[in-house]
Design a protein around this nucleic acid. Sequence first.
DNA 1: AGATTGGGTGTAAACGGTTACAGCGCGGGC
DNA 2: GCCCGCGCTGTAACCGTTTACACCCAATCT
Lengths: 345, 345
Amino acid sequence: MSTRSPRSRHPEGPRQATIRDVARAARVSVATVSRALNDSGPVRDDTRRRVRDAVQNLRFTPHGAARSLITSRTNTLGVLLPDLYGEFFSEIIRGIDREAQRAGYQLLLSSARNARDEIKGAFRAMYGCVDGLILMAPDVELAELFAQHRDRTPIVFINSPVESDDAYVITIDNHGGAYRMVKHLVQNGHRRIAIIRGGNRNHDAAERLRGYRDALIDSGVACDPRLELQGDFTEAAGYRAAHTVLKLDPRPTALFAANDAMAIGALSALREEGAAVPEEIAVAGFDDIPIARYVSPPLSSVHVPIARLGERAMKLLLGAMTGSANGAGRRVVLPTTLVIRTSSP
Amino acid sequence: MSTRSPRSRHPEGPRQATIRDVARAARVSVATVSRALNDSGPVRDDTRRRVRDAVQNLRFTPHGAARSLITSRTNTLGVLLPDLYGEFFSEIIRGIDREAQRAGYQLLLSSARNARDEIKGAFRAMYGCVDGLILMAPDVELAELFAQHRDRTPIVFINSPVESDDAYVITIDNHGGAYRMVKHLVQNGHRRIAIIRGGNRNHDAAERLRGYRDALIDSGVACDPRLELQGDFTEAAGYRAAHTVLKLDPRPTALFAANDAMAIGALSALREEGAAVPEEIAVAGFDDIPIARYVSPPLSSVHVPIARLGERAMKLLLGAMTGSANGAGRRVVLPTTLVIRTSSP
DNA sequence: AGATTGGGTGTAAACGGTTACAGCGCGGGC
DNA sequence: GCCCGCGCTGTAACCGTTTACACCCAATCT
């Protein structure tokens, strides 16, 4: 390591001012400076003014780490998501950020795509740097892996299959939403309804599939495995699946995609093949991402209050940190609603 | 403040283990523990094993702040964006995150919507907590405001009108992209081409408008102020503007939206009004967000390597922090390319 | 007048890591 | 036999902030 002062990365500049420099310049003690800046004690008005001036002149910025060390609060919350692709995550983050800002917290964001090690690594890196954590791990196996850590830093799980009673979990009504959408399709005369499924080990995907099946069974329609197409929540998967659907004989009259991204991919494929939506085949999605209303034809979907989901997760976390969340409020299930636009009858 | 240990927020649990606890359990000194965990010095194999065991047993996690305080590195980079809404930002973040993870950095994310004070506040909060900063401030007035701070923590500006030579700035070729798209429309016979503009003080928006005008002038087509509609980069704005466009007499034969979100909003409005795209009116956007290819009809757009933009910004920042970026590489302009799909002839 | 308050301030001890420096033991070169 | 070097380890200083506690002084109460 070189001889220059550690905090200034730019050799030419003078060393970053500390609270001691400010104290010297304002001819008071460091305690007074701290009190003046944080309103944490009585300070005379002219003393306060001298301190503020010194802060201005020296361009003093408190060293976050030093403060965190003694207060043992980082003022930062972690957000760990499985991916950052698409409007769903962008909306979630937006909701989380909005609420975090309101509460005066910073956001440490990370995504851990596929690999289990990657997630553990990201988790490790965050842990110990944050006052709380919002974790979205729809992969079945991962959720329990972290559940054991909950005693240290509060964790809120979004859409994660976590069983333990004392975990903070916020989910949406996946089963109910899918169920009602499929019921709606049946009520409009559809009997052969295909589904584009989400990822295999994804909990949301599994619940939506379950809702689809239950709705069919309750309607007296037999489930047909050939109508359950594999997908992975991407537009490309929906695109491919729709091509497959068109080749089925007899051809389904409705297509339910487990999320909007796949529904939009499917719409694109159907348009290419000249299949009229909704006349020849109805299409419905899940999530109701903001763009769903703007695609052609406007997409029927199961509305999920995505940004709200983020907000509520953050609220739950803030409650958990202050200890105000009693046992009852640890599990939140947000309702989903049907939004029927023109892509379905 | 209560009497319980500061770091454990959960009263029932024992105090969070420190490096000293680990040292005691492994019967070594704290220095050895530190060396063992960071590979920062010679440690005998069995000593290392004892340390690892103790870490496991005590569930020791290093206190990030304490480490930052002495190393004066936070291992965190800040990202400050004007908004988090839509696929553009989600892609940018994705690119930034990918590169940050590769380099082993954490990401502190924040958005500062409209107000100037809000941005300053967010900036203040981050500053001093991060080793570097990526800042996107397309608002003209704000960019210079922060340029003065560059001597402390390195800052990379994305799409921001920053003049000073020694600032790190990465931009995309807004003018060229818009210019070529409009030229393309003209070459396909369009003479009355409307534009949906971006925000008034937005630099990107201004550059794209300039490219539109220059292309018209160079093509011998007169600019008509009535064809320049106000927008703000949201789908809703595009939707409204398209309705206005249809009422113009004579009606424009092409519509160039300053970003894809507005183009998609416009497509939605045109569809509602029964205006055939591209037969009656051609539509083109800007950004080429991932979903553009999946809307109906697939949207012609000016392709911007959005995720790449984030990646490159991060690379620039990493270079700035190690001081390896020499004067020449401080300004990067990413090229844009035309992607003609079926929404335009 | 002396005791008592309380506002305003200073001193110094934390917080939990990293690391310079010193020390120890041991093997090999002279 | 002595010294040197080297691998391994321990001690303690240091990072920059917050805050408990002590202190001083003026105003008020008894």
